[in-house]
Design a protein around this nucleic acid. Sequence first.
RNA 1: GUGGCUGUAGCUCAGUUGGUUAGAGCACCUGGUUGUGGUCCAGGGGGUCGGGGGUUCGAAUCCCCUCAGCCACCCCA
Length: 425
Amino acid sequence: MKFQSVKGTRDFYPEMMRVRNWIADAWRRVSLRNGFEEYDAPIFEYLDLFTAKSGPEIAEQLFSFTDRGGRNLAIRPEITPSLARMVAAKVNSLPRPIKWFSVPRLCRAERPQRGRLREFFQWNVDVIGEPSVLADAECIFVLVDFLREVGLTPDDVQVRIGSRPLAVAAITAAGIGETGIDSALAVLDKRPKVDDGQFEKLCEGAGLSSQQIECICEFQDVEDLAELKKIPSLEKAADGIDDLVQLFEYVEAMGAGDYCRIDLRVVRGLAYYTGIVYEVFGEGESLRAVAGGGRYDRLLEVVGGPKVPATGFGMGDVVLEILLEEKGRLPAELRSRALDFFVIDGEDGIFETVLRVSGALRRAGFEADFSYKRQGVGKQLKTANRLGAAKVAIVRADGVSVKDLSSGKQVERTLEAFLADPRGL
RNA sequence: GUGGCUGUAGCUCAGUUGGUUAGAGCACCUGGUUGUGGUCCAGGGGGUCGGGGGUUCGAAUCCCCUCAGCCACCCCA
């Protein structure tokens, strides 16, 4: 072949497209029933929009180019900056809370590997303009609502919830100064992913003493919120603890508690999170997180807007599909195509009637198809099977036989009656 | 961006110590079983053995480069 698809991209042949649509349809269905509205943005933006949010280093991890007018542009690696830009432009005229979702196609110039490609789709759900944990709780509920919708159980996946301010308080209480907080957070983010020995090395690299590590780990290993309140050094972070307690009450009330658990080791990678943070992991799998999110109250300011609180999450299609595949949750129907009707010539010289019947079925809303070639009934039935047809309509000069291919039962109708009402039986 | 493993028809693979026109199953197409099916039978298309270069009388088979995939790092918005 002279050309191949670009590294890290996928071709969606019909059988793959069925899976992609099944996932995206579920994303949209769940978003809408939770009261969120869909939005979208351009697939490229000014490069500065992304560097403003994530720093200049990000530039080498995305696809950027200069247009003929000399503008420095980049294909979007995430949609949150676009969302912030859009909201900032109209923030005073939008009724709050702003509950929006999107299913953008994104590109990142990273090295492809399992669960990570250079082009992918990501479901984003955000609540903007609401500072209370009710908004965080609602996002988490939407997330759980989706997991349940696609058949994933609490045994399959878990939402692990942590708190950025609590982690910062614990780090501070361990005697680490302001300048060391970010590097300490970065190290803590690694803790669930490496063994104890590697973790110690990372800590040494970040300049943490063993006493400080012990102090922080003690905090991180707490699994009961009541225990948190007993830690004297966290007195100043009482609000953060109250937020977590409140969050779990909300999530519990909405019926999503069985998927959620506290996990103070979750702090998330980048620095812009300001409150509750969470990640979704498949049980028993060493796979990367299926979804992640949290509160980011300063983002709109960063893109030049007013100070407006925000919270939300993203879920990529690549890891999700692997997880669904491994858990056997992709429906068997997706394996083959489906058709409501296949229309067959029951005798010679009536092809025009086949077209009339096919047209009537299609206008009535059925997925109907017919063969381009005139051939025997037996061959056409084989074709109908191959196309996954539920029924066939065998057309003759004076009538139509409607046959159900799974039961083999056949019903006779006059041509006139069938054309007048293809749905009747 | 760094390192390791892999690369033969659309898919899963076979191909003997380098030796004549590179194979199988499935899939696809055509025809037959003479016109109500998922079976079966026959035939067919499709590969410059990922690509390029080298060693050799001769390479899918050995060497180098490159591309792509997978895995581990980096990173993870």
